[in-house]
Design a binder for these strands. Sequence first.
DNA 1: CCAATTCTCTCGCTGAACGAGAGAATAACC
DNA 2: GGTTATTCTCTCGTTCAGCGAGAGAATTGG
Lengths: 159, 159
Amino acid sequence: MDAVAQERPEGPAMELVHLLRAVTVEFDLLGAEFAARHGLHPTDLRALIHLLDAARAGETVTPGRLGAALRLNSAGTTGLVDRLERLGLVARSRDERDRRRVLLTVDEKAVGLGWSFFGPVIGALVGAADGFDESELATVRRYLTAALAAAAGARESAG
Amino acid sequence: MDAVAQERPEGPAMELVHLLRAVTVEFDLLGAEFAARHGLHPTDLRALIHLLDAARAGETVTPGRLGAALRLNSAGTTGLVDRLERLGLVARSRDERDRRRVLLTVDEKAVGLGWSFFGPVIGALVGAADGFDESELATVRRYLTAALAAAAGARESAG
DNA sequence: CCAATTCTCTCGCTGAACGAGAGAATAACC
DNA sequence: GGTTATTCTCTCGTTCAGCGAGAGAATTGG
């Protein structure tokens, strides 16, 4: 957001905006490199994350839900699931209760892959929290919560 | 990073990891929606951001530098610049000092577009900083700086 | 039951990005 | 100073992710 800051007053709040963008960029690069290293597309990684999150939350995922979450149309979603299936990360199975549906189940391999991606980052980030006491971490959490709401709000009003 | 948290102890630090990822996702969605709304590809938006940052820093950008920053090969970079030129966002001009080079100059239109993207987000984020006093903002800045370093470190050691 | 709905998948297509390499300008070396 | 090596950019042909349209199965509602 430097690009536009030239017309803006600088200040503590702007500094945080810059930092947040930098963190976002860094995360994106990290994901992109991980994906490339494992022969995945960025979309595949996003799908993997979504599937693992859903699995953890105990939710069943169908191609339709996955596609909606990733903003893909049905054709693209089919291609994505084909790809993930070919990589041995997910398996398709018919939902016997509503036989129009296909259920996606994540393989152990996917969990391992997810761990190998997130593990190091999480470790580093948790380590970054060392040197902050409880109340400081609470302050950070409060700020990030507000920033998240702000970004979501900006997206809604702009979109 | 929920996906992996099932095997991890929860705690204040993990909460922040979740929040950071949520903010990243939100920013990505925001960028994707803005891009789609203006007939841009995600790559185009990233290029625009890079060009505006460089312009602000007073640096000259060539197709080669831009492609390297976005991790594109030369063919893809040519296509990208063609696209941006067709959209009237940048112009190509020969560097008279090293006539192998092409210099990219950003049009006013690009600056306006950048502003229309960043303006609302920045405003919302600065607003999110209300309700925090100076020392609290300093704490947040210290944390984000550490998190940035952690992410960069994770990328380096994993990459 | 017949119609409307809800899922998923197939087909054909567009276009972003890749690999390989050509072309033009500059720098380096003998 | 002329030949060779290097540095940029762009062209060509290809691959493949994602789109639009719509077909095919299963379910739900009147």
